[in-house]
């Protein structure tokens, strides 16, 4: 099927424009991170006059970036693992069983997506403080509290997408496992999960990105030692100066792990969405 010329040209023009739109900020990030402070404070220029790697050295001293980085990794990694595990069990129940309250559960969980974060930010903060006072489990200001919070952010969408993905796995497969003597959980672990790897990876990527990028709760729920990158990057703006070259260098450094992971795993994400959510 040869496409007509008009279509090919439309495609070229539109896709080029979209590429430019998508990548200009990335270019600005990269080029400005290689400029000196004097140069980023003057008129913007597309091409750096003198390349320097100083910003990449300085970013680690201006703010304790390494600590923020480790915090973000711990928080995002843990909440991703927990979120995926919890979502697998819930999605398995929703996909394979017809039980009373199934619809209510799906609707309730999905509707939490529309809650304005601001509505439960303060109550959650008070709840964490009270739990801490009553039981000694420090949730406020700790990484644990943040992990707990973030994992519920990605949970609704994860359950929904995984349930869709599980639905696309033929039921005969786990029926066969059940008659082989596996329990329902055996069928889940031996049959359904291996067959749903793309969907599970997609959900994991989503959960990690959700946690890595969240700002509002990170700014209220963390203290100096548990601060994550989302809040930490504000440290490059002092009262008098914004170290724009360092801001750009730090932004690039914190983006690389998620963007690389995302691009490596994006075909899983598309496959997961195709089979799961989009139906």
């Amino acid at each position: 099927m040869a496409a007509p010329r008009a279509f090919v040209w439309t495609r070229r023009v539109v896709l080029t424009a979209l590429t430019a739109f998508a990548l200009v900020p990335v270019y600005v990030m990269l080029s400005s991170s290689l400029k000196s402070l004097g140069e980023v404070q003057g008129r913007f220029d597309w091409i750096p006059h003198a390349l320097t790697l100083r910003p990449y050295v300085d970013i680690w001293h201006t703010v304790p970036l390494a600590r923020y980085f480790v915090n973000s990794l711990l928080v995002s990694g843990s909440s991703m693992l927990c979120s995926v595990a919890v979502a697998i069990f819930a999605a398995y129940a929703v996909s394979r069983y017809r039980f009373r309250g199934r619809r209510l559960f799906t609707i309730t969980v999905l509707s939490t997506q529309m809650f304005p974060g601001i509505l439960f930010l303060l109550p959650l903060f008070l709840l964490y403080v009270n739990i801490g006072n009553a039981t000694g489990i420090a949730l406020y200001g700790s990484r644990g509290g943040l992990i707990l919070t973030y994992l519920t952010f990605s949970l609704p969408f994860s359950i929904w997408m995984l349930a869709g993905y599980f639905d696309s796995i033929p039921r005969d497969l786990d029926e066969a496992a059940l008659t082989d003597g596996c329990g329902p959980l055996g069928a889940l672990f031996r049959v359904v999960i291996p067959a749903a790897v793309p969907g599970i990876v997609a959900v994991g990527v989503y959960a990690f990105m959700t946690a890595w990028g969240e700002v509002l709760f990170a700014s209220v729920m963390t203290n100096d030692t548990t601060r994550t990158l989302a809040v930490g990057l504000e440290g490059y703006a002092t009262q008098n100066d914004v170290y724009w070259n360092q801001v750009m260098a730090a932004s690039l450094v914190v983006s690389v792990p998620v963007v690389a992971g995302f691009l490596l795993l994006q075909r899983y994400l598309v496959a997961g969405l195709t089979a799961g959510a989009v139906k």
């Binding site: 998508a22 900020p25 404070q41 890595w212 690039l252």
Partner: peptide, 30 residues
């Protein structure tokens, strides 16, 4: 191209938006 298009979505929101804030600066922005 598909990979490129997904970059804005994959970038952490604060890193991306802070870059835009730099681009929108009155005196030294792009």
């Amino acid at each position: 191209l598909r990979g490129v298009f997904l970059v804005p979505y994959a970038l952490p929101v604060y890193a991306a938006v802070i870059t835009w804030a730099f681009m929108f600066q009155q005196d030294n922005g792009l």
